[in-house]
Computed example of a mutant assay.
Amino acid sequence: MTSSLAEFSKAAQGLSRNPLGIIALFIVMVYGFAALVTTFADSLSATEKTPLIYFLVIFPVLVLGVFAWLVSTHSTKLFGPGDFKREENYVELMSATASLTLASVKREDTASAAPDIQSIVRSVQDAVPARDIAAARKQALWVDDSPGNNIDERHAFEAVGLQISLALSTDEALAAIERQSFALIISDMARKEGPTEGYVLLEKLRERGDSTPFLIYASADSQELRAEARHRGAQGSTNSAQVLFRTAMRIVLG
């Protein structure tokens, strides 16, 4: 019993270092009280049990809703310096993590699952280069006819030093590639030009002998789509903001 209390105290100290941990502690405390009440449920009448049942059903949904609201409106306030191994880069890392979290919330079905915050933090930590990306002037070209849909993803990249150039069409992308070289190209799939315009751009580049790493960031994802993208010469295909960030940074830093 003493050992369990000591372990809980240690875990509580770790969680209390940032707002997310405090929220988690609050949830544990509330459910702890609910568990105590449930222990004595046999002595409760049906009328007294009803509010408890409603609470146990509604509370998780309410917590998920509040969490989604916090991430959407106050994402930059959810992390503390202790969340990051390199605290001297706290501002940049926090900005990248917040943007990537918000992008994940927008992409995922928040009714079924919340983003894995610790996994996102680790992805951003791993992206921090041994050398300075900004000093190396690494640039990526992002091709999408609706750039407003990926603002948060681009902010996450820019926060760790990767410069992003935009192109709204295949022709605009090809013109940009003729003017300068890029460390990476990220493209959507369907555009006004056609439903598989991402592949059209990829094919034109490869026909030219251009081997610039190419990632497809689309609305759909499956093992078949990933295999098809690799078969056509892309380095990957995903609809996950976190997977995109992790894969792109591995390419840029490699």
Rank of each mutant, 00 (worst) to 15 (best):
I177G: 05
F182M: 02
L166F: 05
S169Q: 10
R179V: 15
A175G: 14
S169W: 09
A156T: 09
A156I: 07
L166A: 08
E178P: 09
T170F: 05
N149L: 13
N150R: 12
V160Q: 03
E158F: 00
E178I: 08
A159R: 01
H155C: 04
R154I: 06
Q180D: 10
L162Y: 02
G161D: 00
D171R: 10
F157S: 04
I164M: 12
S165P: 02
L168Y: 13
A173G: 10
L166Q: 12
N150A: 12
L168Q: 12
G161A: 00
L166G: 04
R179Q: 15
A176M: 13
I177N: 07
L168K: 13
A183W: 00
L168G: 13
A183Y: 00
A173I: 08
A159E: 02
L168T: 12
T170V: 15
A173D: 09
S169A: 10
A173M: 09
D171L: 07
L174Y: 11
A175I: 12
A159G: 04
A159Q: 03
A173C: 08
D152E: 11
A156L: 08
E172L: 10
V160S: 04
A176P: 07
A176F: 07
H155K: 07
G161C: 01
I177V: 14
I151K: 08
S165F: 12
A167E: 10
Q180I: 05
A176Q: 14
A167N: 11
E178T: 14
V160L: 09
E178Y: 11
Q163V: 01
N149R: 14
R179N: 14
F182P: 01
A173T: 09
H155R: 07
T170I: 14
I164C: 07
S169Y: 10
R179P: 09
Q163G: 01
I164Y: 02
S169G: 10
N149S: 14
H155V: 05
S181V: 01
D171I: 06
E172T: 11
G161Q: 00
E178C: 09
I177P: 06
A156F: 09
E158Y: 03
A176T: 13
F157I: 05
E158V: 02
F182G: 02
S169T: 15
A167H: 11
Q180C: 05
S169H: 09
G161I: 00
A175V: 13
A183S: 03
A156H: 07
T170A: 13
F182E: 01
R179K: 15
I151T: 08
L162H: 04
D152S: 06
